[in-house]
Structure formats: C-alpha cells, structure tokens
Design a binder for these strands. Structure first.
Lengths: 496, 496
DNA sequence: TGCTTTTCACCTAGGTGGCAATAT
DNA sequence: ATATTGCCACCTAGGTGAAAAGCA
C-alpha cells in the first residue's frame, strides 16, 4: 500500500505497533472456533456497550438517550435501534475514525446501518439520520504521537444540522423492522453552500451520527400530512460511530483499514498480502449463511469488517433467516435468499434492482395468479438483507427455474422495478410470509425475488395477487387495445 | 460498425437505401433553421399522429382508447398521456422496431416515457406499464425482402402480462404531472420462469407497451389500502411503440439506430462517422434549454433521438422551464436547472442521486432555516427532467455558491438522499414553486437541487422547513446527546 | 436452417485514496 | 506549516451488440 509520505515519516512504526496489539486482542474475541456466531456477537456487544450510552449486557439494542423524557413520544416509546456492522465501526473507533469530507460530498465508510425493533408494525414511521458535533473543539492530528489534539474551539450552536430522511420513509413499522436500514448514501461535505442535500460538516471536528425514529401521525393520510406531530420521535446514537472529519486521512491506520474494507478502494490494496482476494469476497458477500469458505481468512486482518459475518439474530419476533453482516461496506447485501442458497458474487453497491416479487408463471399456472402488494416499498434499495414482504409472496415461478435462475438474482440493475400482476396494495396485507406461502400453495426451491437493494428502489408498491384476463383485454382488433380495468379489482379483491 | 455477416449478406444494400430516403424526409421536417423548437415538435406530432389511435392535430396528447367506457373510471376521467421521445420511437417504428429479449432481462431502447396531464393535482395515482401482444401471430424476418412475415399463430389469451408499476407510485397528480414519467428500467425477458419481475414476452412476436393511470381511492389511507378501487384506471398506448421481440437483431438498420442512439452501445459506433461524439453529447443532454451547440449536429443522423431536444411545452398549468427531450435514451436527464445553466456532462443513467433540495446555509442565514417536504418522492429517480416540487423549494443556499456549485449537480450518486432540516411533510404543502420562493424570500442565481434521477430515489419524503436549535440539542455534555424532539414540530408548524 | 444462449470487449456511471498543486 | 482541492488510476457495477457456440 502506498502511504502518504508525510504520515509515513512520522508515525508508521508506532501505528503499526498499536495496530498489531489490537489485532491480537480482537483475534481472541472473534476467532475462537468453537464459539457460535451469536456468542461472538454477544461478546462484542458487551465490550462495545462499554462505550455506548446505555449499557445493556447481552444485547446490542440501544435505548434512546431520551427515553423517559418529559414529553414521551407517541408511537416510538418502545422503539429500539441496533447498530449493524458495529464490529467494523469499533475497529475504526479504536484507531480513531476519520471521515473524508469533500466539496462534492463523500460517502461515509463505514456507513450507518441499523435495525429497528419495538415499532408498531401497522404504524407508519420515518427514519432519519443526522450528524451532530461531539464537542465544540477543533482538532489537529499530531503525527509523531499519532493522536488528535484539541486545536481550538468552535461554536456549533448556530448550525442547523441537516436531517437525512431515509428514502424508504414513510414506511410501516413492520417493514422497517424487517429491513436493515442503511444510510449508505448519505454524503458528507465541507461545502457550507451545498445544494445537493449532503450533510454539511466542518473539517477537523468530531461528530457523531444519530438515527431518529419518527412516528407518523396516524390521523393524517400519509400523503396529506401538512406537518408532523409534536411528539413521536426517538433518537439513537452510538459511541463507536463517532468520527473526525478530515479532507485527507491523517492516521494511516485509518487509511489502511478503509482500503482494506471499502470495496471501492480495492485498487489500493496490496496484492501481495494474505487477505485481498478472499477478503474482497467477504465484503462482497456480507452475509452468507453457511459457506465455511467465508471464514477461512478470518485472520488478523479480516475480523473487523467481515468477521461480523456472524449473523445477528433478530431479538423480536421470529428469527430471521436473513441476518445482517457485521461489516458495513457501502455495498448492499444480496441475501442469498431465505432458502439457503449462496449469494452470487454481486457487489450490489449502487445497484438498482427491480423489486422482488415472484410471479406465477402464467404459462404453467393458468388459473388465477397471485400477486402481492406491499405498499411499503419492501424491496427498498437501501434496505439490505431483509427481504421485504414480497420475498415470501412470490411463489410459483420456482417451477422449472432450477437450471436457469441460480446465480441470476441481482443481475438486474433497475432501481425502479415494481412488478405486479394486479395492483399494489398494502404492505400489511400479508403480515407473515407463511400466509403468502400458504395462500399460494407453492413449494420453494429457489430464491424468490431476493434482491438486495442499495439503490433507492422507490417502490412502495408491490406485488399483489392479480391477473389480466387477456382474452378480455384483446379484442379481435388489436389496433386500439383497451384495458377494461373494471375487470381487475374485483379479481384482486379475492386475493386481498 | 461491425454488422452481422448474415444480415449483411442479405439486406445491407436495400436497407441502407431505405434508410437514406427516410433521413432526407426527416431532415426536411426537423432541420429548418427558422422553426422554433416547439413548432418542430408540432410538425412531428401531426405526422406521428397519423399512426396513433387518436388523431389530435397540434397535440401529441393521446386520449385513452377506453375513454367513454361503460364503467368510466373515477379520478382519471380527464387524464391525458403524451409519449415522450416519440421522434425516436417513430424512427424505429418506420424501420420496424425490434427489442431484444434475454433470459436475464434486457432493457427497452427506446424506453417508454410519458408525460401525464389532466390529473387531479391533489389526488394520488399509480402509473403503470405493461406490454401486450399486438396480434396472435408469430413472425419471421425475411432478410432478402427486409420484412417481417407471419410465420404462425400463437394463443396469447391465457397469458397474464406482468404489470410494471412505476416506482414512484403512488404519487400525487401534481407531482406526476410535473415529471417525465420514465419506464427506463423495465426489462423484457423471454424466460417464462422469470422471478425478477421482468416483463415476460415471447420472441418473434409483436407487442405494444401500454401506460395505465390508476387513481388511488382517496378513502383509503395510502399505506393501508387493501385493494384497489374497481374503477379509476385509464389506459394509453402508442402505435409507434410497437415492436417485435427478438433474441438477436434481424434488421441491421435497427441495429444501427440502436447503436447510434443508445449510449450504452457507444462502443459499437463507427468512430469515423460525422455524428458520434456530438450525438453522444446530445443523448447525454437530452434537454438543454438554450445552448445552440446542441443543435449543430442535427444532420442526417441526429434527429431521431435528439432533435426532440426541442422542449415540449406543458399544456396544462404554467409552462415548465424544464422540458422533455424528444429522445428517450435510457439515460436520465439532468436538467441543467430551471435557471438556464447548462448541464454538465453527466449521463446519469443508473445514477442514484439524493433528492433535490436546497437548504439555507445556516452560517449565512442564522434565522430559521426552511426545509420543505414533498411527500411525493419528487426527485424520483425515474422521473426525468422535471424537477420535483423540491426544486423550487430550496432557497438560500444560493448565497455564495456561484463559484463552487456550477457543474456539480448530479455528481451525487445516492438514490436515497432526502435531506431535511426538519420533517418531511406533504408534497402538497407547496403547490406552486412561486409559493415556496415567496415563502423563502430568496433570490435564485443557481441551480436548486436540480438532480435528475433515473434511479429510484425512493424518496417520497421531502424537504420541509425546519431547524434544529443546536443549542438545545447539545447539552454541555456531548456524551449522550439527546434529541428533544418536542422542540421540532412546533417550529415546523410555522412553516407548514 | 433458424433461433437462442453465452461470452466478450467496450461503453456509462460513479466510489476510492494518492498525489501534486494550491490555499490559508 | 497545514489544510484543501483537483485530477488521476483503479476499482465496482452494469448496459451494449458482436460473435461464436449451442440447440432443435
């Protein structure tokens, strides 16, 4: 790896020394062969919680700092948020996380990814992120001591931080809870005049991202609210996500870790090193249920972003078959499917993929084909891993797909696709995947529209049972095809 | 350009001859220097309408074939849909449009893009697309005659076509009408077992895309509807968008036109030809308000996709400063801004960009900063050209941006970004851009969050006036920053 | 003999850190 | 003496048609 000559001159040796010590400790934590993924996670949680606002042993779920507040929010009372990829965050945090900010805007790496629990499944929520100053100090990196030192004061009190509303907002609690909520696409800028909606920060300052869960007032139509309720907001932050803003990396350990973990920086990786290829795979496959290969290279250099591949078991509700990776590459994760198929090699970072839905192959299933609609943008782009309701809905397209469909998911780029046989309806139509499976009475042998989306697949639509009576829609003259739409809904109602 | 040897052997000469004749005609239509953009458009409309279902001279707005139907839809009665990029479609249609279908799914080129009028601005609509058979024939391309011949019959009556719901759905009529509604990301497949939501077609058949405007029943909460109303659907189709499905191009004129017009096929363009570079620019800048350079190369080969650069004036409401290109490259268009700045060279095809909003630079504007929310995913990815409500909202960030912001828009990739100072609210909060401008009392000198999105920016959120009282949100101890959210909404209500 | 599938080079589009030039 | 900016090579990710191979 090419290192900044300046940084090299001052701190290489001390940094490397430090780094190695930490690695040894981490290996002890993370690389015990007999420890289950979950137990490893818990171990990490406990140690991590030493730094978080609220210590909850054996759980990484973080209660908001303002819980029990005088004006208790409605609809978010029991909300819990857990940081995903906390191992990677922690590794950066131990070194002293730096985030580059540029005029044009720079993504965060790692990015903030959370899982939310305790929401009312039927309520609508906004989820948002902002970045607030950790203190009022300006910092300066001292190379010879490899430390950040206070270099002055800054008054942040008059700065209104920009709030980044997660693009899937608003969305039902159920849908939010089924997803990994990712803020991958947030960009940081030092341009005070930024007009691109990026989060504006000052360089050489310390900041901390926050996540807000905001209840949508149910009295208002989702599309007609004129203002938000005065309550119903719960805020979460994580100590390990603190970072110092820079315009160029100061600590070369940070540089090294970024290069190692961020797939977009792969070009700077040292090809001679042990990791490299396999680590890249790990980042590409942030979550893989059962391939032992994934963990082969979990040596001294791989744990941070990838050892976290240990799934996080959802604490509320049924354990999800699609679990979150501990690493937080900006990539979006393509769950292999809840059927245990391995992910194909797709780094679906800024992929735009059609929503997931599986539709009855009408040539095979001549009778009414079902389509399910999830109005809550289930395949939302930035929601990783956890398949939307859609994912279970699907169904009959598995017939005959064994040969052709494997390894094909995520080849689609479209961030837009929402495919229905009928009409979109509520995401709450099928509260459980079991229902849709039963409804469809189909067997599952293949992935069902498991497309991880990092892109904002703005689909708030979704599959619905439905069908076109083609015979009706095609008069003998095809010149003026008319869609007698009154045929649809009555049929659809059967499915909904 | 390398041509299929087979195709070449049979039909090169006749095809080229045909092609040249058409080009001459088209040049007559489109390259009269004294004719305004709008008039050119109208000329084309008239000739195009010769082929459309409903002939409406001087207007390319197409009434749906089913208007006046027994069961008149509610909420879509007056809906009108006009095809964008019809010049390009028409050029393909004259040759005999072919669309490649593959197992993995192939995009359409041109893609279907429409503009909708006559909606109730405050109502919610879904907009969807499907592809239906034009007839029940199977076709075969006869090289020596360069014609498609009937080769057999097919029974389509039992096939349920997949309906592709536009990812921005549901969305208010106002927002829909402000956008070019693009179906760029639709993919066609010949895989009957497709589980990726692509539109399934049979090769060597003729099809026609349709666009459906579907009224959302206002009695239901947008997020809680269980089924769609039995009425309120209006369907539109365009003769010039008919195409024959193929697995490999048959007519080399089609191949040539695709290569010339589709930026992704640029690698196959003949570098020695006149067009090439500048045509590429034209496709990259589908709409440019005033740069004469854009039209310099409108020679024999450029009209189809780019001559359409002539803006289409919105028939309903105030003329939009951001108009649609006639061409339909799969790219998404980055309007230079409604302020007349030229687009930077961005082919924002699968770009994911943060929503557009411009926020008061708080360092300059210390008083309450405004943030506007458009609940209707205004910067939606697939909605090209026409800026969402957001675009006007912005405001004060123009201070001091003159130097740094030019040519920067669209550098952002995030399909997700929704940036607020406060909370998202309804897209109907600011029914006109004038309002927001007045509200903000700011001058416009620069682009305001003009980000074209092709990606599904699933943002149905949006900017709202708002502010963080940082002094309140930052207790002296920054360890546990708490967001006393009760502070927000009351403030926001002032703005909403 | 057709038609389909696979693979490929060549594009678009954009996210990385390095590095030299330029501010401050 | 630092900090910032702009440009770059090098990545990821995916959309093209060509051409060869495969299939019926």
């Amino acid at each position: 790896m090419a290192l900044s000559s300046r940084a090299h001159a001052f701190s290489v040796e001390s940094l490397v020394g430090k780094s190695l010590k930490r690695k040894l400790q981490e290996n002890q934590e993370e690389d015990q062969p007999g420890v289950t993924e979950t137990r490893k996670k818990e171990t990490l949680e406990i140690s991590r919680n030493d730094e978080t606002e609220e210590k909850r042993p054996k759980s990484r779920i973080l209660c908001p700092p303002d819980s029990g507040h005088d004006n208790p929010p409605k609809g978010t009372d029991s909300a819990q948020v857990e940081l995903q990829g906390s191992e990677l965050w922690r590794r950066f945090h131990e070194i002293g996380t730096e985030m580059i900010i540029t005029k044009a805007g720079r993504r965060m790496f790692p990015s903030v990814r959370v899982k939310v629990k305790g929401l009312d499944p039927s309520k609508q929520y906004y989820i948002a992120m902002d970045v607030i100053p950790v203190d009022s100090k300006r910092y300066r990196y001292v190379y010879h001591s490899s430390q950040w030192m206070v270099a002055g004061n800054t008054d942040h009190s008059c700065i209104n931080p920009r709030l980044y509303i997660h693009p899937d907002s608003p969305c039902s609690g159920e849908t939010w809870m089924r997803q990994i909520i990712s803020f991958d696409r947030v960009k940081l800028t030092n341009n005070e005049m930024d007009d691109k909606g990026h989060i504006i920060l000052q360089s050489m300052h310390k900041y901390k991202p926050r996540v807000h869960v905001i209840a949508q007032d149910s009295r208002f139509d989702l599309c007609q609210i004129q203002s938000l309720p005065a309550d119903g907001v719960k805020t979460f932050s994580f100590k390990e996500t603190e970072f110092t803003t820079v315009t160029a990396y100061q600590n070369q350990q940070i540089t090294k870790l970024k290069i190692d973990r961020n797939p977009f920086a792969k070009g700077f990786r040292d090809p001679g090193r042990n990791r490299g290829v396999l680590d890249g795979l790990l980042e590409t496959y942030p979550w893989r249920p059962s391939l032992p290969l994934d963990f082969k290279t979990f040596g001294a250099e791989t744990h941070g972003g990838s050892s976290g591949s240990s799934p996080i078991t959802s604490s509320g509700g049924a354990p999800s078959p699609l679990l979150s990776p501990s690493c937080s590459p900006p990539a979006f994760h393509v769950p292999s499917s809840n059927l245990g198929l391995p992910c194909s090699e797709n780094y679906l970072h800024s992929l735009s993929v059609p929503l997931c839905y599986k539709i009855c192959p009408t040539n095979i299933l001549r009778q009414r084909s079902f389509l399910f609609s999830n109005h809550d943008k289930p395949g939302s782009p930035s929601s990783h891993l956890l398949p939307p309701l859609m994912f279970d809905v699907p169904a009959l397209s598995s017939f005959g797909t064994s040969k052709s469909n494997k390894g094909q998911f995520a080849q689609t780029p479209s961030p837009s696709g929402s495919m229905l046989y009928g009409f979109p309806a509520s995401g709450n139509v099928f509260p459980s995947s079991a229902l849709s499976r039963e409804t469809l009475n189909c067997s599952f042998h293949h992935p069902y529209g498991i497309y991880g989306y990092n892109l904002s697949v703005p689909s708030h639509l979704l599959a619905t049972a439905g069908h076109f009576k083609m015979a009706d829609t095609f008069p003998s003259s095809f010149k003026d095809v008319r869609c007698n739409t009154s045929q649809w809904p009555s049929t659809l109602n059967h499915c909904l």
